[in-house]
Design a protein around this nucleic acid. Sequence first.
DNA 1: GCGGGAGATAGAACGTGTTCCTATCATGGC
DNA 2: GCCATGATAGGAACACGTTCTATCTCCCGC
Lengths: 202, 202
Amino acid sequence: MSTTTSLSADELGSAAQRDRHRRILDATYELAREGGFDAVQMRAVADQADVALGTLYRYFPSKIHLLVSALVREFERSEAAFRELDVVPGDTAAERVTFVMQRTTRGLQRDPRLTEALTRAFMFADASVATEIRTVVRLLTAMLTRAMHPGRTTPPTDDDTTIARVIGDVWLSALVAWVTGRSTAAETGAHLERAVSLLLRD
Amino acid sequence: MSTTTSLSADELGSAAQRDRHRRILDATYELAREGGFDAVQMRAVADQADVALGTLYRYFPSKIHLLVSALVREFERSEAAFRELDVVPGDTAAERVTFVMQRTTRGLQRDPRLTEALTRAFMFADASVATEIRTVVRLLTAMLTRAMHPGRTTPPTDDDTTIARVIGDVWLSALVAWVTGRSTAAETGAHLERAVSLLLRD
DNA sequence: GCGGGAGATAGAACGTGTTCCTATCATGGC
DNA sequence: GCCATGATAGGAACACGTTCTATCTCCCGC
């Protein structure tokens, strides 16, 4: 039997297993931060996490699963941080969304190699990583719709979701362009801001 | 000396070289159409194009360059086809842009494996492929701004370019989602259409 | 205590992208 | 015609993702 999705942290029985899981993601994060996508080599991750190569593959069925799982963990942290921040500054939806995007983007730009590794993994992922990808998309959409309507309890409308998804699309493309050196950080920010103001003129 | 960009067709001296170049791209196209990204194996491409492996690498410095160059060729064909089509149907910019996008998308969906190969290569490309990537972006933006303002001779405004780029971003994300099985062809089309009507309400 | 089984380890082995090397070939200048 | 030089063929070699095998360890039910 070969699993096709990564084991999630909660469905791991023993404490030792949860700890291995965490060590693997920590090692991935660290290697990616230092050397980007190419430096995240499966043997290196296994070494640094102090597990055998076979064990690494038991927890994460491929390098892409591994990196996208690391991305999920980062996004969960980031989304939780925004949820705790009960006042997103800005008077209009456009301003608040721009704030959320720019802050997230700046966070990513602080660790270019890490961002490169996570972004490329995300973009290269195929159907077998669909579960993890969906989680990322869901978290991002949630962050954006919350910024559009702070404090609202009713679920977002279809229009809101579409707008959030379009902004997410633009953001991802901008990230890819930045990661691959096709645009500077400033251009990325400017394009994002123009796109948001086009989509959220109210 | 190792080149970092692919040799473009025009800067190849002899007819024999231009022919090798074409044979290589033809083989790439064929293999991708039949088996997708994984089937485009460098040894297989070299065999089918009837060149040595070393020659293949002299023309295209990596598998990604190779696939993105194939994408450039397809896009050039497609853009030329739209330019010849002097009347794009539709009364509004939104309708015309939607027409162009849907027709292109349907063309891609006719060869899912080819699309998967080209899309994943495009998304995985790193800085060394920037030249080719820029060409694709330029062609796509040109196609879209032309659809927005058919028959216009003055260059597109900044706003036009931004809108075209955002639509391009959404289109690419939708393509990735479709290629990786996260969304169906119908959902892809619907999302695209919603995005265009949000961006081009006039 | 103890035997059995799931999960872990160490490391060999395999496939494919990439590099490198050498012999051969083609071509343009004399 | 002949030579110098760069391009191509053919194939070995290497790196890293992935798979496989053999062995070990630890925990659970008895």
